[in-house]
Amino acid sequence: MQVNNRETSDRIVARKSSFQFKRWFKATGWRHLIGVVMAVFSAFPLVYVLSAALQPGGTLITANGLFSKVSLGSFVTLFNLPQQPYAAWYGNTLIIGVITSIGTVFLGALAAYSFSRMRFFGRRGGLLTLVLLQMFPQLLAVVAIFLLLNGISDIFPAIGLDSQVGLIMVYLGGALGVNTYLMYGFFNTIPASIDEAAKLDGAGHARIFFTIILRLVAPILAVVGLLSFIGTTNEFVIASIVLISPENQTLAVGLYQFVSQKFSTNYSVFAAGAVLAALPVMALFLWLQKYIVGGLTAGSVK
């Protein structure tokens, strides 16, 4: 009798556990399963590139054995190639990316504030025009950009071909559009009573914009700055057209040399360069995360 009672109780406990598991899986468990699958799917390319960077061999075939061999030789070789100045590429990318992202945020914020707070003729048409122009990427204007900078080089070489300043100006030329539209929507969430209270105290549009509004819209500024920095550092076509000298090129253009030449391909060095190139983007994302997540507009109006 005692054995039967124990078996019965064990079956009841097993059925209860199975019922609880099914209920948990139906409620939230399937979400965890999808999360694990997506995490593995997203992390595998990163692990593969890191393994290829640590492989002493020079082909992608040797990287198939994940971390079978570990060596830092590719990272050492990366900084000891006179014809491929990786350190110069790294510095150029940071300079161009930081200046372009700051300029993009500043120009976009000025335009968004004007469209959001001021009323003038052509306001709606101008906003729609910016969005429509963004439908045509700068890639379509590569030939025009090359001819324009080539002509400028004869008069102002500092902003012509093979000039980082010229490349920054090209990037800033396409900085408006979607960025302004995103900021415009966020600026509209800021109550107009803040501006009215500041105007009663004698503040003008410039003071309101720089001392009040910019602090309240910090989350969207961080998002636009991060997206601009990522897009600038990863851009290849226009940078390869404008920048000709190896010492003036960016990481996207320079790293292509490691895999474009048939008899000098070294994928381990290329992977090592790609791993190091991802560090600034990751650091910037972690630094701006608190601004992206935090809603600084909460509590601005009492």
Rank of each mutant, 00 (worst) to 15 (best):
M1V: 13
N179H: 04
F44K: 07
F136E: 01
V170Y: 00
T250G: 01
S71W: 10
L110M: 10
N150A: 03
Y291N: 09
G273M: 03
V40H: 00
F79T: 04
S68P: 15
F115W: 05
A141P: 14
D201G: 02
F210D: 05
G254Y: 04
L279R: 09
P246E: 08
F136C: 02
Q261N: 15
V3A: 15
G65E: 12
F121S: 05
I244F: 11
S228M: 04
A222V: 12
V259R: 07
L255N: 06
V217M: 06
R31W: 13
S245D: 11
L72R: 01
A53N: 06
G295R: 08
A27Y: 12
D195T: 04
S51T: 15
A63T: 11
V178L: 02
V281Q: 09
I220Y: 00
D162T: 05
L200I: 14
R124Q: 12
A218F: 15
A252E: 13
M169L: 15
G231N: 15
I194F: 08
F229D: 02
A197W: 00
P56D: 04
T59N: 06
L182D: 08
T8V: 10
A218Q: 12
E235Y: 05
G185F: 01
F156Q: 14
R207W: 02
M135L: 01
P246F: 00
L81Q: 10
T232W: 08
I159L: 02
G58N: 11
L46H: 05
F44I: 12
G57F: 06
V170W: 03
I102W: 12
F136A: 01
G204N: 07
A39K: 00
G35L: 07
G173N: 03
K262M: 15
S240N: 11
F263H: 14
S71L: 04
L66V: 09
G29M: 08
A192C: 09
R15D: 13
T189H: 09
G166W: 02
L161E: 03
Q134Y: 15
S153R: 05
T180C: 00
R123F: 06
Q2C: 00
L226D: 03
A27R: 11
A14K: 12
L78W: 05
A43E: 11
V143N: 09
V70W: 10
M282Q: 11
V242P: 01
T297Y: 10
S71V: 13
A14P: 14
F285R: 00
L127E: 08
D201I: 02
P246V: 00
G103E: 03
L50I: 02
A274I: 07
Y181Q: 02
V98A: 04
G58S: 10
G177I: 06
L148I: 13
A218M: 15
L46Q: 09
G122Y: 03
F270T: 11
V237L: 08
V13C: 04
A274M: 01
W287M: 14
E235G: 06
M38L: 11
I208F: 14
A63F: 11
F186H: 13
F120L: 01
Q134S: 14
I99D: 07
D195W: 12
T8S: 13
F146M: 07
V242S: 04
G97N: 00
R31H: 14
Q2Y: 06
P191H: 12
K69W: 09
L167G: 04
L216G: 15
F285M: 05
F121K: 05
S163A: 01
Q138S: 11
F44S: 10
I238Q: 03
